[in-house]
Design a protein around this nucleic acid. Structure first.
Length: 811
RNA sequence: GCCCGCGUGGUGGAAUGGUAGACACAGGGGACUUAAAAUCCCCAGGCCGAAAGGCCGUGCCGGUUCGAGUCCGGCCGCGGGUACCA
């Protein structure tokens, strides 16, 4: 009997699939199509366990769908633009292009031994000019349809390096290289008008039946529809009134002050003549631009000395403050504060000794405000002590509606629907991205490049020896004739956010070599993606941008109306996590270390090289920056791809995070070896022996359970059933033919997960052609019916005994 | 801060509101072997008990229910996102 040897078996069957063209996707109108897609990888250079888990899941689905008669599209590509390539060029020299394409070649080499059912003829990278040229063409289409525009936006500014920083490059409010405190600065940037689609994107969430509820909820909250009251406070002593927006107009009688954003036009105007205002604006411009940084920053205020009149009582004057927690991007950039009913407002008023009007809404009687604000519940009834809108006892919702109606009737305010969703800023002041195909002309203004001049290619001759965007410093690349008037003009040097690249790649896979972004027939046949699989970390941005892009592409004629929701079903796999190992450098900044460089001693974890003690941080998402990554290549070399595939699916439910530990791969290998050994024994057994109903019953149960598992992403449960079926098959006294039949079914049920081993067993036991093309087995229902049922006997909800009875009492 | 998840033996986990811990890993015991590896068999939530059996047990506190790991409310801990990481 031969030993199971993946090193011999796996390449053999990969060659057989390639010869047979088993995974080449073909448009075949006679068969139902199935498009399965995993979120494509960033070419970091090494595949990791998260990739193996992600692509194995997609592969299980793809292979299962092939065996159930579908024409399957299962492509792979590379999300190849982005910062790490530039960082590599800065740190180690070389060119981002060489680094990226080298990484792609390396990763492809690591991925192919996994035996994935990928149609490699459709592979592309987003940094291929053939891809980003089509993207530039669509950008121009979007411009023509008013889906793109320019406006000012805030960026992280490193005042020492004189460059824009990504949020990731801001560490504790300081630039990662310069260590200088970061400032917020306004810059003219390109935007997609995703906010025009707020309502549509929100409403359509309801129809996404194949999406996880949590993702739909996150997207809804992100779009953040709210109804509120917009009205103006008249200035005492004249001047432009201050427009405010509030979602809690029912608290208007508790107003304490009017607050404006530091970026509000009035604040900017005051800063021109008042040095203190200017100094305050500079002070609060410190720090990064993330919502988290803004929310967590100390709440700071500045009294402008201006006052406004309360809309319901002209004698009631409120002070106007500039406050750093008010965002210019949301609402009107101005609010009124009600300390009695909002904790943040209360904290602010206590800090700056502003008036606090005692509770005028209460569950029972009005009570003086202490340290905690009473937030009126939206759905519970509350006594409305002030009767200005004709209310007595009402819910918050009713009070809000009544106040809006009251204001509208009186003519001093109007109900307004607001969305939290902001337009998508796509400008990046970086080299390694898709160039924005426009030209700045002194005469004609901003002019799109002519389509016949696309792609606008990135120049190869750039240097990364100084901070900032090398395109800005390029001596000739920027100098172009105006596409409109032909006079000398300047090319746009901003490149696109890499989210643009990943917002339509799924459509490009349907016709990766087309001369236009998509091809109508191919898009009509293959779209939508039937099953999309990827990490939960993309629940909001990538998926929302893709939903927007599909709509914009439809408007421009690049996708059919049926494809505006491009992903029929979404599965968010959990992440592969690992402990993080850290030491500190001389400036007490963290230095991360790979797991393979750590040694474990009695005293704890130590660095292998120096023996320095290592701080162990609890398991978190595997990431390059934290270096808590494990290389699957070692496992594939030691045990084979099938073992790695089996292992990543067997131990944890696919939607949950899994912490990688070294143990387990060995066990998976032992199990696959055992299955192979049992199959070999059967193949060599004499042609004799009786049938066995128990074995057939177990076989049909396994078909049923595994099919259910594969269809519902219960891969770990399906594998547990296969363990059980293996135990049954190992112990059975059934004859050779029945055992062979059962083992062929076992091979088929395992084939989506362990395709190489399954092919080997299939051929060993007389299966015809390739198992990859064999039709999926169907469970015979008559074998699934149990004759008896066991009933628990419970007394007061506690199990006391059990009773086994025949199901059919007549028997 | 805000939004969204998750929390079950030593470990990964299983369990349409109905016998908690399937299936594995690690561990213990045994068989085979000159020996080891490999393989096969058995044990195994905690506590008490020789056993039969009993009590406790799904992060914590409370609630709904004949019955809660599962549903509801409030905490605690961990993770993801937070618009320039991808």
């Amino acid at each position: 009997m031969s030993r199971y040897s993946p090193a011999d078996v796996e390449p053999k069957w990969q060659a057989a699939w390639a010869d047979a063209g088993t995974f080449t996707a073909t448009r075949d109108e006679s068969r139902p199509k199935y498009y399965v897609l995993e979120m494509f990888p960033y070419p970091s250079g090494r595949i990791h366990m998260g990739h193996v888990r992600n692509y194995t899941m997609g592969d299980v689905i793809a292979r299962y769908k092939i065996s159930t008669g579908h024409s399957v599209l299962h492509p792979m590509g590379w999300d190849a633009f982005g910062m790490p390539a530039e960082n590599a060029a800065i740190e180690r020299g070389g060119h981002p292009k060489d680094w990226t394409y080298g990484n792609i070649a390396d990763m492809r080499d690591q991925m192919k031994p996994l035996g994935l059912s990928i149609d490699w003829t459709r592979e592309f990278a987003t940094c291929d000019p053939e891809y980003y040229g089509q993207q530039q063409s669509m950008f121009i289409d979007f411009m023509e349809r008013g889906l793109v525009y320019r406006k000012n936006a805030t960026v992280n500014w490193d005042p020492v390096d004189m460059t824009v920083l990504a949020n990731e490059q801001v560490i504790d409010g300081k630039g990662w290289r310069s260590d200088a405190p970061v400032e917020r600065r306004e810059l003219t940037q390109w935007f997609f008008k995703i906010s025009d689609f707020s309502e549509e994107l929100l409403e359509a969430i309801d129809g996404l039946d194949g999406w996880p509820a949590k993702v739909k909820l996150m997207q809804s909250n992100w779009i953040g529809k709210s109804r509120g009251l917009q009205f103006a406070f008249e200035r005492v002593g004249g001047g432009d009134p201050i427009e405010v927006y509030t979602t809690r107009p029912d608290t208007l009688m508790g107003a304490s002050f009017v607050g404006i954003s530091p970026d509000h036009p009035l604040a900017k105007e005051l800063a021109e003549t008042n040095a203190d205002v200017a100094a305050f604006r500079t002070e609060v411009a410190k720090g990064g631009t993330t919502e988290e940084a803004l929310e967590k920053a100390e709440k700071l205020g500045f009294d402008t000395g201006l006052t406004v009149k309360h809309p319901l009582n002209p004698d009631w004057e409120l002070p106007v403050w500039i406050a750093n927690f008010i965002l210019m991007d949301y609402g009107t950039g101005a609010i009124f504060a009600c300390p009695a009913h909002d904790q943040r407002d209360l904290d602010f008023c206590r800090k700056y000794d502003l008036p606090v009007i005692d509770t005028f809404l209460a569950l029972d009687d009005p009570a003086p405000v202490g340290a905690e604000a009473f937030v009126p519940p939206k759905s519970e009834k509350v006594r409305w002590v002030d009767h200005f809108a004709g209310l007595d006892v009402a819910t918050g919702e009713e009070a809000i509606d009544a106040t809006i109606a009251f204001a509208e009737a009186a003519g001093w305010g109007k109900g307004v629907t607001q969305y939290r969703l902001r337009d998508w800023g796509l400008s990046r002041q970086r080299y390694w991205g898709c160039p924005i195909p426009v030209v700045h002309c002194d005469t004609c203004g901003v002019v799109p490049e002519r389509k016949e001049n696309l792609p606008v290619r990135l120049p190869d001759d750039v240097s990364f020896d100084q901070p900032g965007n090398p395109l800005d410093r390029h001596p000739t690349w920027c100098e172009v004739p105006c596409p409109s008037c032909g006079k000398p003009a300047k090319r746009e040097t901003d490149t696109m956010d890499t989210f643009v690249d990943s917002s339509w790649y799924f459509a490009r896979f349907t016709a990766p070599h087309a001369e236009t972004p998509t091809n109508a027939e191919d898009a009509a046949y293959w779209m939508n993606v039937d099953q999309y699989i990827g990490g939960i970390e993309h629940a909001i941005l990538h998926l929302l941008y893709s939903r927007f892009f599909a709509r914009a592409m439809h408007i421009c004629g690049h996708l059919p109306a049926s494809a505006i929701e491009p992903f029929d079903a979404l599965f968010t796999q959990g992440m592969v996590t690992h402990e993080i190992y850290v030491t500190r450098d001389e400036r007490d900044r963290p230095v991360y270390h790979l797991p393979e460089h750590i040694e474990w001693h009695e005293s704890g974890a130590r660095l292998g090289e120096s023996g320095a003690p290592v701080e162990v941080i609890p398991s978190a998402k595997m990431s390059k920056s934290k270096k808590n990554v494990v290389d699957p290549v070692n496992i594939i070399e030691a045990y084979g791809a099938d073992t790695a595939r089996w292992f990543v699916l067997s131990d944890s439910p696919p939607e949950r995070d899994v912490e990688w530990t070294a143990s387990g791969a060995e066990a998976a290998y032992k199990h696959l070896s055992r299955v192979y050994r049992i199959a070999s024994d059967i193949a060599e057994a004499p042609q004799a022996g009786a049938g066995d109903d128990d074995l057939l019953r177990a076989m049909h149960k396994a078909i049923h359970d595994v099919t259910m598992g594969v269809e519902s992403f219960g891969f770990n449960a399906a594998i547990a059933k296969l363990y059980g079926f293996t135990n049954t098959l190992a112990k059975t006294k059934a004859g050779r033919d029945t055992r062979a039949q059962a083992m062929r079914v076992m091979a088929q049920l395992m084939a989506p997960v362990t395709p190489h081993l399954s092919e080997e067993i299939w051929s060993m036991l007389g299966g015809e052609r390739l198992i990859a093309n064999a039709p999926w087995p169907v469970a015979d229902e008559s074998y699934l019916v149990e004759d008896t049922v066991t009933l628990p006997i419970q007394v007061n909800g506690k199990r006391r005994s059990e009773l086994t009875v025949a199901k059919d009492l007549d028997k």
